[in-house]
Amino acid sequence: MTSLAAFTVLVVLVGVERLAELVVSKRNAAWSFARGGVETGFSHYPAMVVLHTGLLVGALVEAYVREPHVPSALAWSMLGVVVLSQALRWWCIVTLGHQWNTRVIVVPGMAPVRRGPYAVLPHPNYVAVVLEGFALPLVHACWITAVVFTVLNAVLLTVRIRVENAALSTLSQEPAGA
């Protein structure tokens, strides 16, 4: 298998993983809404979907159009970062359980989760997103996609984290599951 074919398979697998996330997210959003969950910040959500889809499409387009030389040290090290980012993402999903979804929905009366990766960082899932956003394209030396996604994602995350922090500030500050 050529490195371009292997990269294509990797990007498709990440896309399938993202679809699995959306299934979990939809189920968890329904759970939250059934318990009186309140959604905030929906206006930036479509931009987030476009940006994350653009990461996958952009990486493949750049790989096929530019056909960059891919140093194996870069490919393997960035693949390692992609795998670690996926592990961190799923650690976040499992830790938050029903409270995790891709939207900002809080259930009144629930306390913020402060265990697992949330005991160390307030937004560990976004660390996973940042890592994956530059590492995935760089598995195939697609530096343009990596830079464009990273810059646009930084802008989006400033909005997203502000919205999420405001929503979380409405919750009891007693940690859930502590």
Rank of each mutant, 00 (worst) to 15 (best):
V83N: 15
I93Y: 01
V50C: 14
L55D: 03
T53D: 05
L60S: 06
C92I: 01
S43F: 08
A47N: 02
V82L: 11
E39Y: 11
L56K: 12
H69A: 15
G41P: 00
L51F: 05
R66Y: 03
Q86G: 05
L56W: 08
W76E: 07
F42N: 15
V49I: 13
A47L: 08
A63G: 04
H44Q: 15
V82R: 10
V65C: 10
G41A: 06
H69P: 08
S77H: 10
L60N: 05
V38E: 10
G41W: 00
L60M: 11
M48Q: 08
L55W: 01
T40E: 07
E39T: 06
Q86I: 04
H69Q: 09
A73Y: 14
L60Y: 01
H69S: 13
R66G: 02
A59W: 03
F42H: 14
G97Q: 05
S72W: 13
C92S: 08
V49H: 07
G54W: 11
V65H: 09
A63R: 14
V94E: 04
L96H: 03
Y64S: 12
S77M: 08
A63M: 14
E67S: 12
M78R: 06
P68Q: 04
G54Q: 10
H52L: 08
E67Y: 01
L51R: 06
V38T: 11
A87Q: 13
V38Q: 14
G58F: 10
S43M: 12
Y64Q: 15
Y64D: 05
H52V: 03
A75R: 08
L79F: 02
T53H: 07
W76P: 01
E39A: 11
I93H: 08
H44V: 08
L60Q: 05
G54K: 13
V50D: 02
H44G: 03
F42Q: 15
T40F: 06
L88G: 02
R89K: 05
A75F: 00
P68D: 01
A63N: 15
L96V: 00
V61I: 12
P71M: 14
E67Q: 13
M48L: 09
P71A: 15
P68I: 05
V50R: 14
V50N: 12
P71K: 13
V38N: 09
S43H: 06
F42P: 10
V65I: 12
G54S: 12
M48N: 02
L96G: 00
L60C: 11
E67R: 11
V49F: 03
W76T: 09
W76R: 15
V57A: 15
M48Y: 06
R66D: 10
L79G: 01
L51D: 00
R89H: 03
A75M: 13
V94Q: 04
C92L: 13
V70N: 09
L74A: 14
